[in-house]
């Protein structure tokens, strides 16, 4: 080893670094598919396509629950009373301020479409219960009003409105 020149040292160091770098790149590349496989597969994604819901059978004051992407969606045909209640509350006083108008589609004011998952920890609130003519979550007592806005309890946010559009007056497309 006494004859080893410094030039050889550099070359050797370079070789070691290069080999180590290529090994690191290879390891990283192997990890990619091992993680990626956990994402939703093609059939799950395909099954998450938009769905159409016929509103005709839902009478005033009634609601239905449909599933989209494994989530329960409440579709509620609100009464005049429920709409008035939702609109008479000063928006600024709410925990998560939002007007009722911003949560329904214009011209279809009686239809409330919300994802029925409590924003606290994911339980399913019960419709037509609680003090606000809306939803009551049995898990930790959160209450939502007839616009799906949180009014009381540990939940921080309003029930989210899923992406949807009216295909006709009595049919919506969710997703």
């Amino acid at each position: 080893m006494t004859t080893t020149s410094s030039a050889e040292h550099t070359r050797r160091d370079f070789l070691f670094v290069a080999t180590g770098a290529v090994a690191a790149v290879g390891t990283a590349a192997v990890i990619w598919p091992l993680i990626s496989q956990m994402n939703p597969d093609a059939s799950t994604i395909a099954a998450g396509a938009p769905i159409e819901v016929d509103l005709a059978p839902i009478a005033e004051g009634q609601d239905i629950k449909v599933f989209w992407r494994g989530k329960p969606i409440y579709i509620m045909n609100r009464t005049k009373k429920q709409i008035d209640e939702a609109r008479s509350v000063p928006t600024a006083s709410l925990p998560d301020p939002a007007s009722d108008q911003s949560r329904v589609k214009e011209g279809h004011d009686q239809w409330l479409v919300v994802i029925g998952i409590c924003t606290h920890l994911g339980c399913i609130p019960i419709a037509h219960e609680g003090d606000y003519d809306g939803f009551f979550c049995p898990c930790h007592g959160s209450q939502y009003d007839s616009s799906g806005r949180v009014r009381r309890g540990p939940a921080p946010l309003n029930l989210p409105v899923p992406p949807y559009a009216f295909v006709s007056d009595s049919k919506i497309k969710i997703g």
Binding site: Q37, N39, S43
Partner: peptide, 13 residues
């Protein structure tokens, strides 16, 4: 077969 067809990199695994 759905592993091979639908899961990301399922065919590889």
């Amino acid at each position: 077969e759905s592993i091979v067809r639908d899961v990301n990199y399922g065919w590889l695994l």
